[in-house]
Amino acid sequence: MKKFVNRYKFFLVMVLVTIGLYIIDPIAGDKAVDTIGFSFKELLSVLPPIFVLLGLLDVWVPRETMVKYMGEGSGIKGILISIFLGSAAAGPLYGAFPLAGVFMKKGVKFSNVLIFIGAWSTTKIPMFLFELSALGTKFALTRLIASMIGIFVIGHLVDKAIKKDDVDEIYANAAQMNV
């Protein structure tokens, strides 16, 4: 029980905050509950297949294969695969982190992991279609192109700014993690 409370501390505090909001301002409380319900449905619909694929990837795909396609020396092929996997993904950015963890565990090059995260965050195809209809072609296309460039700029700068020791530590941590 104590362990549960400790792990779900953040969640429990947020539940109390929501109840507090409801008492102070029932209209805002209703709105919050609506949004939470919506996001929860999104979470439940999007996450299960991602985690099933993550489990299969971890068990079936050997490290050597991942290294070959996305590791050191995978060059432009590795970059393209990283962009493709990130852009084809569904779901919010926080779903990308566990996958990135498995990638690192399997020896995917750090800059490719960063590109994957970048692509997941900003160039998702269905999101783009959504943006197109909501904000117009000119706006959406300009932002897509600017973001594409940004993924590489940010990935490159982070890669350069972080010492090799720190990257090694992150990889060691990923290898130990329960996915």
Binding site: K9, M14, L21, A28, A32, T35, L43, L47, Y94, V179
Partner: peptide
């Protein structure tokens, strides 16, 4: 493993959007 974080984030976002 991720559930506590996911759930906390969802509620935080919901409250923020309401306020």
């Amino acid at each position: 493993n991720m559930m506590p974080q996911f759930l906390g984030i969802i509620i935080l976002v919901g409250v923020m959007l309401a306020v």
